[in-house]
């Protein structure tokens, strides 16, 4: 998986899908691009030819709203086709607006929030009991952490010392309708998670090197603790007029905004 998953290309795919399907949830997909790219590229033991291999590592996208970012990765990995991207949201097509386990490469149904993390926790417990040394990644949103079951899972993982579980929080500081600090303030997120027995690092969620090192270091740590990374991200990252604004949680691209967004990505090349 080396030398693939260029984040600029992934963002282009997201925009393409969003434009073709006239879909929402653009900004919350853009914030997790680096996170997914780094996991797939360097940390996930995952054979695209054997996606049902029971010994694979798991990447659980608990914040199902960011699914376009995962589709973009799966496109690069060859699991979904160009046609799938071009026909996004067409009648009778496979790719939905939230994560769905029927799609090859997606592990769970999510988007009704606070589910994926519990399933990931069960997978981590299963892998630990089976002594298979599988890693289980769960990508959750900071808005998603409003959900009680997330904290049930965090308490459980801490208690059972599930050292093979890594939660990555996409801390983009927004949720559907407003900034998280206006709704449920999560100022001390790292400390909160740490207090349940996790080893936690806080990183720039758009710095691939930093993410890479943090994942590496946490898994090399010999403490028997579950891991978490609080990835500080920007909602809408990569497109100047979408960044740090909540407008693009629900706004759709038109010709003009699509071309303007693409142009920005071209200039970054």
């Amino acid at each position: 998986m080396k030398n693939i998953l260029d984040v600029n290309d992934l963002r282009k795919t997201i925009l393409r899908m969003a434009f073709k399907g006239s879909t929402v949830h653009i900004a919350c997909s853009l914030s997790i691009v680096e996170i997914l790219a780094v996991i797939y590229r360097s940390h996930l033991n995952y054979d695209v030819k054997k996606i049902d291999d029971p010994t694979r590592d798991y990447l659980i996208l608990s914040k199902g709203h960011g699914v376009m970012a995962q589709y973009a990765c799966l496109r690069e990995l060859g699991l979904i086709s160009k046609q799938d991207i071009e026909n996004y949201f067409g009648d009778g097509t496979m790719l939905k607006g939230l994560s769905d386990s029927r799609v090859p490469g997606l592990e769970v149904c999510s988007g009704t929030l606070g589910h994926g993390l519990s399933v990931a926790t069960g997978l981590a417990l299963g892998a630990k009991r089976n002594q298979t040394h599988q890693k289980i990644f769960a990508v959750v949103g900071d808005g998603e952490l409003n959900e009680g079951p997330c904290w049930e899972a965090i308490m459980f993982a801490g208690h059972h010392k599930l050292e093979n579980l890594m939660i990555i929080v996409d801390k983009n500081n927004f949720q559907a309708l407003a900034e998280t600090k206006e709704i449920i303030n999560q100022e001390n997120l790292s400390k909160s998670i740490e207090s349940f027995g996790f080893e936690v690092l806080s990183v720039d969620g758009h710095d691939e090197q930093e993410l890479d090192t943090a994942i590496e270091n946490l898994f090399q740590s010999d403490t028997l603790k579950p891991k978490a990374i609080v990835a500080n991200t920007k909602k809408g990252y990569g497109i100047s007029f979408m960044e740090d604004s909540n407008e693009w949680h629900y706004k759709r691209l038109d010709d003009e905004t699509y071309q303007a967004a693409l142009k920005e990505l071209e200039l970054k090349k």
């Binding site: 519990s118 399933v119 926790t121 981590a124 009680g148 079951p149 049930e152 459980f156």
Partner: peptide
């Protein structure tokens, strides 16, 4: 005993089932 956390219990059961339990 998963604790007084039924929602997580079902998710954990789903994960365990996928792991062959």
């Amino acid at each position: 005993n998963v604790g007084v956390a039924e929602q997580n219990m079902v998710g954990v059961a789903a994960g365990l089932s996928r792991s062959g339990f």
